Simulated scan of single mutants.
Amino acid sequence: MSPVSDNFWRHGNMEDYRRDKPENVMGPPNETVVTEFILIGLSEHPQAQAVFFPFLLMAYLISFLGNSLIVILIIADSHLHSPMYFFLCILSSVDLILSNNALPEILVNCFFDRPTINFYRCLIQMYVGLFLVSTECVLLAIMAYDRFAAICQPLHYMQIMSWRLCISLVTVSMAFCFVVTLITVLLQPTDFCGRNIINHFACELQSFLKLACSDTRASELFMHISSLFLLIPPFGFIVVTYGRIGLAVLRIRSTQGRKKAFSTCSSHLTVVSVFYGTIMIMYLKPQAKSTSDQDKVISLMYGVLTPVLNPVIYSLRNRDVKGAFWKVFGREMSK
């Protein structure tokens, strides 16, 4: 453990440590090498952490089981081999990896007074999370276009959403997000001057950059520019697309069909608003010098809550998915 870490825990909380730390505790930049990070999380609020744990555990189980079930059903049932369920399968796969990237470690850390994470494990967790969240930003916009084609141009749906186009859209979006993540890795700061205390539940880019004592202006500028491109255009496209879907729904003569379509669209927009809204608050607002407890909770909204809501909103209420469930698992239970 570095001298910075021991000094912090001796003071008992972050604010006291920042105020009272001696000037020479970090030493010259190259003398103290950071090999691990301390994750603060809610360790300063043990009562809140006790309430926090069962909520996170339930969220993880629902996300893991729900998204795993969707992936299995879509692969196993040939009736679900359509563009819409192809995108749902990709979305569930992304959410499944995202929920397993940091959440199990956060749950385990609730039992430790001084949770730590290896330096390279921290980098992997941070950049895998960045790639997955970026991919989901673009993927939700692609899924909105798929629903627009299905509802507004049903007779030409299969011609518009050909398998070649579907695979190309997913491949290009993932390649773009990979390039964004790779550039972020190349701009990563190298000097931390012994600072290894991350005021967060997991390794997160903003909190990570705040530890650096080298120049981070290029990293921060690229983070803001990439956030603008990954958040504003997809979210704007989704809003416009669902607006056109809403106009098409109004022309449906059946009251029941109109109500069902509005229910589906409103639930989709709710998930999208929670996901994009919380990320925009995190990455488009002016950055403070330190991470607040409010920032930690907001990050959980898109990192934990969205993978829980996606399978419920997009798939598990769907009649075709329910039919596939009884078809696949009912056959197994009857053997």
Rank of each mutant, 00 (worst) to 15 (best):
V25M: 09
L228R: 03
C213T: 10
F237S: 07
S78I: 05
L316S: 08
F192H: 06
I74S: 12
V179Q: 05
F8N: 08
L155Y: 13
G323R: 08
A175N: 06
T181G: 04
I70A: 12
T306L: 07
N24K: 01
V272K: 02
T216C: 07
L165N: 03
K322G: 06
A144W: 11
P311C: 10
A248N: 14
V297G: 07
I197Q: 01
T270K: 03
Y276C: 08
V138H: 07
E15C: 03
E332G: 00
Y157A: 00
V33I: 14
L169N: 08
T184Q: 14
R114P: 00
F52C: 05
L69V: 04
N118T: 01
P189F: 02
I198K: 07
Y60H: 14
C152N: 14
S290G: 01
P22G: 13
D146N: 10
A48Y: 15
W9K: 05
A102Q: 07
E31S: 15
M174S: 12
F329D: 03
V108M: 04
S134C: 05
R258N: 10
I252Q: 13
L56I: 07
L80G: 06
F37S: 07
L61V: 15
N13K: 02
L221S: 14
I245M: 10
V133W: 00
N109F: 11
H81K: 10
Y276A: 09
M126Q: 11
T32L: 12
S266R: 09
L165V: 11
I124K: 14
R114E: 00
F148A: 02
G129N: 09
S134V: 06
S267H: 12
S134A: 11
N310H: 01
S266C: 08
F176R: 10
V4S: 10
Y314C: 14
L56H: 10
L284R: 06
C89K: 00
P83R: 02
G330L: 00
H200C: 05
F229I: 15
T270Q: 05
W163L: 00
P311Q: 10
L57V: 15
R217C: 02
T241W: 09
F86R: 08
A149Y: 09
M161R: 14
A324Y: 00
G27N: 03
L269S: 06
C203Y: 03
Y145Q: 11
S226Y: 03
I198V: 13
F119K: 01
D293M: 08
C110K: 02
P233D: 05
I106T: 06
S5A: 12
S266G: 01
L155W: 13
V185S: 07
V108R: 06
F208H: 11
F86I: 06
G303D: 07
R251K: 14
G194M: 03
R217M: 08
A248Q: 15
G236I: 14
S92T: 03
Y283G: 05
I151W: 11
G246D: 13
F111I: 00
Y283C: 13
A261T: 06
I167M: 06
R195S: 05
L139M: 14
L182M: 13
C203M: 09
K296R: 13
